[in-house]
Nucleic acid binder design. Structure first.
Lengths: 161, 161
DNA sequence: AATGAAATGAGAGCGCG
DNA sequence: CGCGCTCTCATTTCATT
């Protein structure tokens, strides 16, 4: 089940606050207030409300993968054989449950899934493919793209027009 | 230029702390200390050191794209014509500068770049392709994958073996 | 109904042993 | 590394429009 996001309209204040928090969520409420022309408690209320509403989904630290020995980033395009609802759900669960899989999207186009995978070395990816792709008889084929450079990385989203 | 990450060895404490901060960076130092069996100031010192060393790259809020009217997530595989260093750098800059482009990777394989793009609607993506792909005479071709479901999303990285 | 000002309490950031 | 302190910041209360 997915989070029930009561997507009500966000006003200009909310959007500005989100823009700041997406860059640095340790910014003090007083500082945010000064930048958006609001008092600290007002900022506090809005952040709380957006968190409850699921607009703010999490507050996380971004860690450099190479610093923790996870130096290989890989994209994998996966094509499945059967696209029945049960089969798709099973594949989603299988992919999402692997800790090496950072991101998993179900897509339209020439592939069915796109995975973003981070592993210490290529041998680990090889092992993962055996487990995740060759070990899954609903996977028809997959294509691998090895990242040579992380040109831009982020989950941030444009909140201002 | 890229950040100079003095990638020294992280011990088991550091890795546990990172694992916690990647889930919720608002966790108090006292709570973290209890979970990893360390005092709060010790936790603070480690976090400060890892931040200075670039292991922790940022602290950000994760915002639900649909809540801010950015409801379409798209993957684009881009193949370029010339792969000279200057041309590649120019492409990197062009892709990274677009705010709709959340993530951009330079990859090996059947494509040269993979982009993760988030826009309010398909028409916005269409406009973006004109600007970014058709307007760039070094782009040979590109393929589009529209995300129907964000099965798993994260920048988190496995810090524990 | 949402805001801003003031008071309270928790947590971060120090130096100390 | 842990213990104490200080001080900033988050959080609540209350009056106001």
């Amino acid at each position: 089940m997915r989070k029930p996001v009561r997507a009500q309209q966000l006003d200009a204040f909310d959007r500005k606050i989100l823009a700041i928090l997406q860059r640095d969520n340790n910014t003090s409420q007083r500082t945010i207030g000064e930048r958006v022309n609001l008092s600290a408690p007002a900022v506090q209320r809005r952040i709380k409300r957006m968190t409850e509403d699921g607009v703010i989904q999490a507050n996380v630290a971004v860690v450099d993968p190479t610093a923790v020995g996870q130096s290989v980033t890989i994209f994998a395009e996966v094509e499945v054989i059967s696209e029945t609802a049960e089969q798709i759900e099973a594949a989603k669960r299988a992919f999402a449950s692997a800790p090496e899989v950072q991101q998993c999207y179900y897509v339209t186009g020439e592939a069915d899934f796109i995975l973003v995978i981070v592993v210490p070395a290529m041998t680990d990816y090889e092992a993962l493919t055996r487990r995740l792709f060759f070990g899954n008889n609903n996977v028809r084929r997959f294509r691998t793209f090895v990242a040579m450079d992380r040109v831009k990385v982020g989950l941030s989203v444009t909140t201002e027009s």
